[in-house]
Amino acid sequence: MKLIFLHKYHYGDIPGENTGNATTSRPASTEWPLWEVFIRSKQGLDHKHVGSLHASDAAMAIENARDVYTRRQEGISIWVVESKHIHAADPAEAQSLYDPANDKIYRHPTFYDLPDELTHI
């Protein structure tokens, strides 16, 4: 039996029909790198992934994010990270990665009685 190890893929580099970045026909030197944008909508909440954009450097990526993703007051804080630094699990391995959790209901904390005052659980 062949063991399948986790392969690391750059975001957007997932092979096959899921290929996200098919725009590599131009030479890399003239193509601005891709950045992933994370926005915090209000104080106390997490930064959430909202999309991606092209920019020549981190400063421009933040400005572009401001212009593209916060035009309608969506956020109060912006993170950007170059897409190549994000590694993704291979969707082909989804069965072995995620399905085993299906029948393990004892991992869900559903057997506790929670006081009414507790929200956001």
Binding site: H54, E63, N64, D67, V68, R71
Partner: peptide, 11 residues
């Protein structure tokens, strides 16, 4: 010149 800057200058 690029989508992001198109939006920036329009803003």
């Amino acid at each position: 010149p690029i989508l992001e800057q198109d939006i920036a200058i329009s803003n």
